[in-house]
Design a protein around this nucleic acid. Structure first.
Lengths: 331, 331
DNA sequence: CTGAAAGCGCTTACAG
DNA sequence: CTGAAAGCGCTTACAG
């Protein structure tokens, strides 16, 4: 599958490669006669020419490739983000390299290296715990990079986030007003700042009048740990609300309730983070926290593109408001 | 962010670029003294050298890039496949470009062109209706390409598929034995061969004794059309079974049942294609058809890799067996 | 209006 | 054991 090159076109059309390059790139300034222009397009068509972007990239020091590092592309939340980013990136002429870090700094680092070697023009990443080194290395090289969804403390790069603290504060107030006797926050035992924010926002607003418990799980064994946590903490004799701070937690928790035939909202009330089709197969419509993925994706791509074109790392975070979509799962 | 090159290393270490290239690539044959070897690694480390794969790609005519074209990366089924393929590809040193075709031949074609220009070494694709031209063009160029999940009639390329016809035959027999009075096949009104296979397999085994109906929807307005189809066809006075031939159809259908408080399996029995977390939040555990995604991904990557290393298009399809995971939704 | 030439960062056959 | 040189497929400043 030897591919035709610009040189082949030049030879066949009887012109120089320079001329071919000019007409194929439709450069304004260069005035090439319509005859040769036509000829060149003709030849290109007949020999089925496809430009070699790799050669162009090398010459131009621009690959029009964008790296996207997520925790796990098979997770609903991330695949939705990936989809939005794909669309936005394509609008600006970028092609996406996608990788999943699996929440491990090693894999994360490996992906940044891989992408960097492949000369991506920039990266959009959801950092994992202890990925500081990998990211700082990129920053030192002034590699364009922005975060999405997550961020890192003490690492100063632009990114898009949601108002994690505030939305959790809001949820807490919302639940408090409903006079629950007990509220269980189901979250992660992690150092990821955006998740801690969700927790702290909740903590901040919690009334001393309500019985407040936390169930925290690791990032890897979610279902089992949620089951165990609920088993040990859920007390149906009290009017209780559950707040799941991610889609995975929400799904695990709802499965627990289903399995034990615990009715929502009759026996217990539920709010879960993120939007996922799964919630919609639960017998009760679940109140959930919706993130504006489309807007976030658009902004992330805009940020990375502007950084690529003019590198300035002001560490600016663009904050989008998440929204409680109140349904029937809270009473 | 000017990056260090092999030339920089050579200059600082006081050797030629050839020597640097040799040691960095750890070539066996070339015997470079341990002193210079050490020196070169040292310099590379201190100036923070990252190899430029683009330059290497150009020289070697190998990019170690793989293109993956799916219908929609945000669909559970495809994002799971993508995840498996990502892992397998990485094992063989490939990096993944991912794109979503949205079931339109235009977008599909655009992606093949984009990927081809980016010099991917090969593509793994789930073709859409009328993508024949785009694919034939690649074949003519002897571009390594394999299909996954789907295939095209009259287009001869290797690929991995499941035994769509047989599994549907099996499901049909399985349901028939249970003496349903009415069976509704919910599928797509499409020309995609793998979906037609599912339908034909079912048709083939259907007994004239049972009342057999089909609800077919377009690829784009699934939820609404499933609702309407069930509204018009579901007759609860009969002992009925529903067979949803994809996860999207299954989810839409289950939502319909939920909304109308139709109990599974008391009022109606259900089998759905594909595995998705969503099914697990439905009050009844849903019997579903499981595809061996991991094996399929592995084989797809193996196929494309072997095609890349030694192009022979024998059009061979590797068929994996899907499996009915019988749960509580059929009685 | 068109072309010769340099150069992007690599690899490798060849020579020494 | 090491280096000079060609070349992968492009772009572009410069010259004519």
């Amino acid at each position: 599958m030897k591919r035709a090159s610009i040189k082949d076109i030049a030879r066949i059309a009887g012109v120089s490669v320079a001329t071919v390059s000019y007409v194929l790139n439709k450069k304004e300034g260069s005035r090439i006669s319509d005859t040769t222009r036509k000829k060149i397009f003709e030849v290109a068509e007949t020999i089925n020419y496809t430009p070699n972007k790799i050669a162009k990239s090398l010459k131009m020091s621009k690959s029009k490739l964008l790296g996207l590092i997520l925790a796990d592309i098979s997770n609903d939340f991330y695949s939705s983000i990936a989809r939005c980013i794909e669309d936005e990136a394509m609008k600006l002429g970028y092609t996406l390299l996608i990788g999943s870090s699996d929440e491990t700094p090693e894999k994360f680092k490996k992906l940044t290296e891989l992408f960097s070697e492949q000369q991506v023009d920039g990266m959009i990443v959801a950092p994992v715990v202890n990925s500081d080194d990998a990211i700082n290395k990129l920053i030192k090289e002034e590699y364009p990079i922005v975060t999405i969804d997550r961020y890192l403390k003490n690492v100063n790069i632009p990114g898009v986030v949601i108002n994690n603290t505030e939305i959790s504060e809001y949820i807490c107030s919302y639940l408090t007003e409903k006079k629950f006797e007990e509220i269980i926050y189901v979250g992660y035992d992690t150092k990821l700042p955006h998740l801690l924010d969700r927790q702290e926002g909740f903590d901040k607003r919690i009334s001393s009048a309500v019985n407040y418990k936390k169930v925290l799980t690791g990032l890897h064994n979610i279902a089992e740990e949620v089951y165990e946590g609920l088993e040990n903490n859920l007390d149906l004799s009290k009017k209780t609300a559950l707040y799941f701070s991610s889609n995975k937690l929400g799904i695990a928790g709802l499965r627990y309730l289903l399995k034990h035939r615990i009715k929502v909202p009759e026996d217990v009330s539920v709010i879960a983070f993120d939007e996922t089709e799964a919630y919609r197969l639960f017998p009760t419509e679940i109140s959930f926290v919706q993130q504006p993925l489309m807007d976030m994706a658009k902004e992330a791509v805009r940020l990375i593109d502007s950084q690529i074109n003019n590198y300035i790392n002001d560490g600016e975070k663009v904050i989008f408001p998440a929204q409680l979509m109140a349904k029937d799962s809270v009473r």
